[in-house]
Each structure stands twice: as structure tokens, then as C-alpha cells.
């Protein structure tokens, strides 16, 4: 922990020193456009707007930042837009892992390589949730119930052939069960449908279900992560995020399922520009508002750039591709 903090301080220092050099190399000469690949109010939208608010509040850029929502076609609109803006470093694209997964399942005039990866700034966890009055107290009993009635248990999620759907397919494989996946428009909708008892479970991110958990409408069973989540404020009855077992502990051997919050530039931009934004985003992470955003949304504060980010993308894409191919969703 101490090491990590020291490291963070060091990177901050380097970033602070480095910024003057980077500025000399490339800096925005006109307003910067943040292209959000989700609709207003979605997770990616909040991510981008938080970054924008921090940049504006702390005057990290001389140029104004404008946020534009291009969430049509599950974000495809924004990616295609980014592709056509090749060589234009004043447009920054905010996304998740849909940048590399979406082109696998939908016929698009867009390939993941068409954008230049900049960084991933946080990873969002996925949990298995049941309604507050569900008889299942742990993941094991839920899985057994699902086993007993193949195809009868309904799991809700956001969108089709997207992160939630892929996760549900992985759960089916890992636990040897068969369920019915019901795609809703958003995680928020999936949360209310679960609280109303219309589906038996969902795989929402922490922030999407927090309100309903507090009110007793839904309950988490386990988290799809290698280790338990960070301890924050207790949420209900003294229980907090860290009290939720991992799904592996609970008998569902799935431990690497996370959604990164990613930042891209259009293709064909000079390396200087990429470096500039990496530095800028590093500065953003140092601000208290960022920490506050991470805590509030119960995400993990991780930062990947350069090689690390490339590796992350590679691994995540391979995993996703395996499921997508097995389900026959692959389009090209």
C-alpha cells in the first residue's frame, strides 16, 4: 500500500515535470472534443464528464473541453466518428471494452485498430445480484437452483451480445447451467427489473445497483474478481463492498471479468499527442474529485497506458472473442 502510494506520488511528480516538456512538443490549439460512446447519463458519460469537470475546475488545459454524446448503435456511432477524424488529436474518445468487442459482434465499418489507445483509467467490477427477497443467500444455492431448472432462471442485463451477456454466457459455462438472458436498455433498467422481481438475477456494476441495495430491493451474492473489493463505507446493516465474497470463493470459478474505462484518440495521430493526453489524464487522477468518483462508483482505481494498455486490450479481447465465437455471434 505504502509502496503504491509512493509510486503514485512519484508518477505525479514525473507527470508534473514532464508536462512542460510535453507541452513544448504538442498541445491543443483549439477546443478539445470529448466524444462519449454512450448516451447522456450512462456510465461512460459520467466518466467523461467527471474528467471534463476536473480538467475545467483545475485549469489543466488552456482550451475549452466540449463533451459530445455519440452513443448510437451501442457506441458504434462514436467509434465510426473517431475513425473518420483520423489524424485529428483534438477529438478524444471515451469508451469501455466495447471499442474492441463491438466490432466482433456487429458489422461495422470500423476495426479496433482504427483508434489509437491512450489509457484505461479505472476498472468497473461485475457482481451477481438477486432480489432482496430471494431465497438464495449465497451464489452456490443460486447456481443449484438454476441447475435444477434449466432455462427457467432469468438473468437480466444491459444490451445484447455486450459485456453483461458475455458474462452470463461465461457463468453458464463455468457453472454448467443454462439460463435465459433478458437484455434491457441499460443497467438502471436491469436494476429496477430485479428489484421488482421480474428477473431472478442480474450482473450489474456496483454503482448501478447501489441505490436498490441500500433500500433492500436487491442483494449481492458475489463479485467476479480475483479478490474482494476495497472496503468503503458500510452500505446496509454494517455490511459493505468488502463483505461480498468473490464468486470463486462461492463456487463459480470466474475471476477476471472487469470493464475498463478507456480513452482513445483517432488513428494516425502523432505520438506527442498521445503522450500529452496520458500526462493530462495522470494529472486528473491526482485530484480529489477523481478519488471521490472512484469511491462513489465503487470502481477500482487502476491506470494502464502504453504497453500495459495494449496487453490489457489483447487479453480482454481474446477472452471476449472466445465466448463470442463459441456463441456464434462472430460477424467477421
Amino acid at each position: 500500500m505504502m509502496m503504491k502510494k509512493a509510486l503514485m506520488a512519484a508518477t505525479a511528480l514525473v507527470a508534473a515535470l514532464g508536462i512542460s516538456a510535453a507541452e513544448a512538443a504538442w498541445k491543443p490549439s483549439k477546443p478539445v472534443e470529448f466524444v462519449v460512446t454512450s448516451g447522456a447519463g450512462g456510465g461512460t458519460d459520467q466518466f467523461a464528464r467527471t474528467v471534463q469537470a476536473i480538467i475545467t475546475k483545475h485549469n489543466l488545459l488552456d482550451q475549452p473541453v466540449v463533451v459530445v454524446n455519440k452513443g448510437g448503435g451501442s457506441g458504434a456511432e462514436g467509434f465510426v466518428y473517431g475513425k473518420t477524424a483520423a489524424g485529428e488529436p483534438h477529438k478524444v474518445i471515451f469508451a469501455t471494452n466495447n471499442e474492441w468487442l463491438l466490432p466482433l459482434v456487429a458489422k461495422l465499418a470500423f476495426k479496433p485498430e482504427d483508434l489509437t489507445p491512450v489509457a484505461a483509467m479505472a476498472v468497473d467490477e461485475f457482481l451477481l445480484w438477486v432480489p432482496g427477497d430471494s431465497p438464495h443467500q449465497d451464489a452456490k444455492s443460486f447456481i443449484e437452483a438454476a441447475k435444477a431448472a434449466p432455462g427457467k432462471v432469468k438473468i437480466g442485463g444491459s444490451q445484447s451480445k455486450d459485456t453483461d451477456h458475455i458474462l452470463v454466457k461465461q457463468i453458464e459455462k463455468a457453472a454448467g447451467i443454462k439460463v435465459t438472458y433478458v437484455p434491457f436498455k441499460s443497467g438502471g433498467e436491469a436494476a429496477t427489473q430485479l428489484a421488482g422481481g421480474h428477473v431472478e438475477a442480474n450482473t450489474n456494476n456496483p454503482a448501478e445497483n447501489l441505490g436498490q441495495w441500500k433500500a433492500g430491493g436487491v442483494r449481492p451474492l458475489c463479485v467476479f474478481a480475483p479478490e474482494r473489493m476495497a472496503r468503503g463505507e458500510p452500505v446496509v446493516d454494517g455490511k459493505g463492498w468488502a463483505d461480498i465474497p468473490t464468486c470463486k470463493e462461492a463456487g463459480v470459478p470466474l475471476e477476471h471479468y472487469q470493464m475498463p474505462r478507456t480513452v482513445f484518440l483517432p488513428g494516425g495521430v502523432q505520438q506527442d499527442a498521445v503522450d500529452f493526453y496520458v500526462d493530462l489524464l495522470k494529472q486528473v487522477r491526482e485530484k480529489p474529485e477523481w478519488q471521490e468518483y472512484i469511491t462513489r462508483t465503487s470502481q477500482s482505481n487502476r491506470f494502464f497506458a502504453g504497453e500495459d494498455f495494449q496487453t490489457f486490450i489483447k487479453n480482454n479481447e481474446d477472452e471476449g472473442r472466445a465466448v463470442i465465437a463459441a456463441e456464434g455471434w462472430l460477424v467477421n
Binding site: G71, G73, E77, P183
Partner: peptide, 21 residues
Amino acid sequence: GMDTVSGSLRLTYGIDELIRG
């Protein structure tokens, strides 16, 4: 545009501009 339930792009005829519906 994008069909929520199946996750496929419908009636876009390969025109990028129609992706968003």
C-alpha cells in the same frame, strides 16, 4: 440502427450514418 434485444444492426444497408438510427 442497433437492435437492443439481438444486438445486431438492422436496416443500415452498410451506411455508417444510419448506425445511430
